[in-house]
């Protein structure tokens, strides 16, 4: 493995860790000392150099290891990647968007050469070289969405737009916060968010849907979501809940700093040109509490957010059981000093 990428695991011995550089650029999701649902979308425009917003699709030190983990999840359960028949065109749109973005943003790692529909793709970190015919799925080893998302960090869903709604009808979902693509595929926007408490009554999904139906090509947007994960486990799927659920029960004050992770999703939304579908990359970033509190502002703020979060939300996000342990641990990093607005480290 090259020096750019970590040799690490997200299962069994859990050797995942963030370098000091990765901690510094971690997308801490709380702009203030408390949290409640909101639509909170902003244009997905390039952010500061070195930040996770610098490029359309962030490639970081975990890239190669995450792709290895994805391949293992798919080998165990191929239903984690599905595309209903009418979504193939959207898959090509996504493949084009990602290949063009990566070749432009990371020329040292990715190259794309086009001669009409004859495309030549080079992915150096994963040692892949592929010549294929754009829009001809028989020239790729698998469907276009699966092909490119086996080479791109984060989960992906593709939403068809019709009847004034969005329908989740294709996806690659192996790093999810406890939802099942196999069960949810085919649902509309309200159906697939149905289990989320409170937010429907607050009108969050009505507003978000209205906004997304008008999302324009060339003007992607982004937002954050977050939850908690015990051990650096990318695949917290409902399918495997009996396997990872028990891990929550063995947490102690001694292990919480090293085993408890804040899990942040950087979600972006892109209108796709040929299919009129919306691509929804959900990029997961993990950071252990020990790493997070090395940034004093984040330690103080996370303590306040977790301490004050309603139990209903903590239950939905699956960490009510360990909330007291978290609050006790984080309290030692909160001296009561005021925090500056915004999520950037001071």
């Amino acid at each position: 493995m090259s020096l750019d990428f970590n040799d690490e695991t997200f299962r069994n011995d859990f050797t995942f860790k963030n370098s000091p550089k990765a901690i510094k650029r971690f997308p801490f999701p709380f702009p203030e000392d408390s949290y409640m649902y909101s639509v909170n979308m902003e244009p997905h425009v390039p952010g500061p150099k070195g930040s996770v917003f610098e490029h359309m699709f962030d490639v970081d030190e975990h890239y190669v290891a995450e792709m290895r983990d994805r391949a293992q999840v798919l080998a165990d359960d191929p239903l984690r990647c599905q595309s209903l028949p009418h979504m193939e065109l959207a898959g090509w749109d996504l493949l084009e968007l990602i290949m063009e973005s990566k070749a432009r943003d990371y020329p040292q790692w990715f190259e794309l050469h086009k001669n009409g529909n004859h495309w030549h793709w080079i992915n150096r970190p994963l040692q892949i070289e592929q010549k294929f015919t754009f829009m001809d799925p028989t020239t790729l080893p698998c469907g276009p969405m699966e092909y490119i998302t086996r080479q791109t960090q984060g989960d992906f869903t593709l939403q068809d737009q019709r009847d004034e709604n969005l329908w989740v009808e294709a996806g690659m979902v192996t790093t999810q916060a406890d939802w099942s693509l196999d069960f949810d595929i085919g649902m509309n926007f309200h159906q697939w968010h149905a289990p989320v408490p409170k937010a429907h009554e607050m009108g969050v999904f009505d507003r978000a849907l209205k906004f997304l139906l008008k999302l324009q090509h060339g003007a992607p947007v982004r937002r954050f979501n977050w939850t908690m994960t015990v051990d650096p486990l990318l695949d917290t799927s409902p399918e495997n809940y009996p396997k990872w659920g028990p891990g929550k029960t063995t947490m102690t004050p001694e292990t919480i700093g090293s085993r408890q992770h804040l899990r942040v999703e950087l979600q972006t939304l892109h209108r796709l040109p040929r299919s009129n579908a919306i691509a929804f990359p959900i990029r997961c970033y993990l950071i252990r509490f020990e790493e997070l509190v090395t940034v004093p502002k984040w330690g103080r703020r996370l303590h306040r957010v977790i301490r004050d979060i309603p139990d209903e939300l903590a239950t939905y996000k699956g960490f009510l059981r360990n909330k007291p342990l978290m609050v006790d641990y984080l309290a030692q990093f909160d001296d009561g000093a005021p925090t500056s607005p915004g999520f950037w480290a001071d």
Binding site: M187, T249, R321
Partner: peptide
């Protein structure tokens, strides 16, 4: 799920 024509059952004693 309309596609599967079923409600969802989830393990109650996983943890």
């Amino acid at each position: 799920s309309r596609r599967i024509a079923a409600f969802q059952g989830v393990n109650i004693d996983a943890e």
